[in-house]
Amino acid sequence: MEATVLPTQPTFMAQPLAPAPLTQLRRTLAADALKLRRTAALRLTLFSGALPVLLTFMIFFFKGYIILKAGGTPWPRFISTAWQTAGTLLLPLFVVLLTSLVVNIETKATAWKHLYAQPVGRGAVFCSKLLLLLTLNAAALLLFVGLLLGAGGLLGLLKPTLGFQTYAVPFEAVGWMLLRTYVATLGLLAVQYIVSLYWRSFVVPVGVGMGAVVATIALLSWEHVDKIPYAAPLGTAMSMRAAKGGVLEVAHELASHEWYSLAWCGGVLVVGYLLLYRRNAPN
């Protein structure tokens, strides 16, 4: 007896083939980067670092002769003043706003239904936006540091009496601060990312983030404050000291609140992804 052979129809696939996971991620990233054009998220990244630098520049331009009357290198005082201005309130609020704005690009366009109907997995969508956020966050910090050092150089030109041009820039200490501050923002970035994705609104994550930042400031003297991700950037900014000998003292290792920030980041992303993965996408 002959076996019945079904005619092969050209419209039917024998084996459905999906693009490789890395290809999906690369494509999603390319699209996400394009969608950033002319957005508030991008402007925020580019200009957020300028405010603390501008403030510090003005302070040192007009009152530098009082602050630096002890003489010696002006860099440690200058850098720590700017860093503490940025790290206490501005940095956590920047991360809150940035995550909410980036996720809101899709929410505002009611594009989640469109995105999930495209041939890219939910994992690619999740990772792509996360990578974008990590990059924007790093870019903002690097811009801040670049502007800060540039402002110091400018002070050296405009106010030679302050001595910015005669002393060396403490690059090593700045590098460590940069790394530790970045790590300190990761915990709250992850929490805010999941909150934004979960509620798919702009107001909820901003509200949650602002509330958490304010609550953290109220809780600063609590012995467990190092375990709150929203307190970590502040902890790092405060850990920097301009010591008497004109040295910028920065620990060359991660502090406990920075390890907690990393743990929050990893834990929240895994739990959040599992929570979001099986959810329906009605809008």
């Binding site: 999906q24 969608k35 366009a109 009611t110 469109h114 109907a117």
Partner: peptide
């Protein structure tokens, strides 16, 4: 086989999902 099958599907669900800050071409 969601991802593989969606590769051959085009869809327009209710109001089109458009990014208002981008041009039509973008």
């Amino acid at each position: 086989h969601r991802v593989a099958l969606l590769n051959r599907v085009g869809a327009l669900i209710e109001n089109p999902s458009l990014y208002d800050h981008l041009t039509g071409r973008e």
